[in-house]
Design a protein around this nucleic acid. Sequence first.
DNA 1: TGGGCGGTTCCGAATAATGAAACTAGTTTC
DNA 2: GAAACTAGTTTCATTATTCGGAACCGCCCA
Lengths: 263, 263
Amino acid sequence: MNSHVNEMRARDGTVGKALDVLDTVAGYGRPVRFGELLEGSPHPKATLYRLLQTLTNQGMLAYDESSHTYSLGLRLVRLAHVAWQHSSLAPVARPFLDALSARVGETIHLAQLDEGQVLYVDKRNAQRPVEMFSAAGKVGPGYCTGVGKAMIAHLAPAERARAIAQQSFYRHTAHTLTDPERFAAELDRIVAEGVAFDREEHEPGIICIAAPIVAPDGRVLGALSITTSLQNRTLEDLTGLRPDLIDTAKRIAEAAASWQFPG
Amino acid sequence: MNSHVNEMRARDGTVGKALDVLDTVAGYGRPVRFGELLEGSPHPKATLYRLLQTLTNQGMLAYDESSHTYSLGLRLVRLAHVAWQHSSLAPVARPFLDALSARVGETIHLAQLDEGQVLYVDKRNAQRPVEMFSAAGKVGPGYCTGVGKAMIAHLAPAERARAIAQQSFYRHTAHTLTDPERFAAELDRIVAEGVAFDREEHEPGIICIAAPIVAPDGRVLGALSITTSLQNRTLEDLTGLRPDLIDTAKRIAEAAASWQFPG
DNA sequence: TGGGCGGTTCCGAATAATGAAACTAGTTTC
DNA sequence: GAAACTAGTTTCATTATTCGGAACCGCCCA
């Protein structure tokens, strides 16, 4: 699914390899045995073994004696807490999300771009209170989500090309855009309109409207979306929310700008 | 504050050093410049420089061109999402926390032990919906919190000794236990009683009752606490919640056990 | 124009990573 | 119950990488 990320990132010496292993373990999404990791690993047994030892010793992985399996360690959770607080828009955007959520009553996502993929960093849910990490830290595709398209559309040309090259263009639904050419055209349309729509491109029956969060200097900081299902609302309903969405995105960008520099 | 953790963990070759740098950056809690990191770093300029390059290139750090500062990167948030899901009690405990929260209406914490410190992995708040990462990933002291004492008390002797040695015993309030001897006695009392109390030992006016979550094989998985302020409730009130708390902790332990092995 | 400071690059020496192979422990097969 | 097998761990001579002192760059300020 996202193993190509591994291939891309390696070649930073030992540290790169170690972090690569971390990604691989994460990719399984469950405790994994030494043998499983070995096949599919570019490293010989002893090397992989030492990497796992080191990472475990460092608390980045957790080894379960009884089941002989490795999982990601708690040290990551600890680090991520700090990372989320100062490398993400979420702390700045929080009050704006709260307000927007109260006004529109639909699911709201705040996302950032990471290696061409969408990384959700905060969320407001209409019904249930809030799902914790299930939102923050989750990744999604860039080419078939509202937030992904909104962000990629507003990148500088070179970055945009790179981001397009990083997409898998897997067909999730009948509406998914799977052709890079047509995708690029869609991006131009998005820049012209200022917002991106997800027209059931990722999940059937799910639609959204998304706006980019762009810094004064033009850098894309993230994106904001309002998601709903066709059972509740129509695309026209979402279009009606456009002014509020764009306004909120702009306010977040301003807040981020004045937060960035005084630090 | 927690720099001793750094000292302890290094000496795992290059990877150890790199992760150490990550901790250091996290310790600042804000974007930090190269020079700041250099003083206080055991590495010469060139070495530190290369470590930062590697980590940045790997997405573990983010470098801001304009302010020349490093912060923790988004890749950590991504990894932590997975780590939280399968290396923490939180997913298993979630329904039990929801139920307990609904019954008692006070703030609830779920924590695990990491290097002698308390790592909060989930939270239910009485008033406001839920504060996201502000709970999950946050660390606290082991010797003056309910959850910390409950967990350390139920460790095997050798581990308990190690955990005690890892405490700073900084005096937060007039009630903080700062003597290792008396702390050990408190731990024995906690084992006998089955629950730990925080009697304003961390923050004035804040009290809590905590129970450990212990696996069938005796391993301490985590702890659960109900926190309140002396303005609202008394220690006696909390004692009344003891049966419910202990019962919930036991149920979580059972759920974790039956989740651990089928994996 | 020139000094100072933060950041970057070089390169021989020192060190740590490598990986084939041997070993051990637990498990299945006959 | 022994032998073959499987999965995981350790060893060690070789090799490649990291190390770090020193030189270099370039920007800001005087």
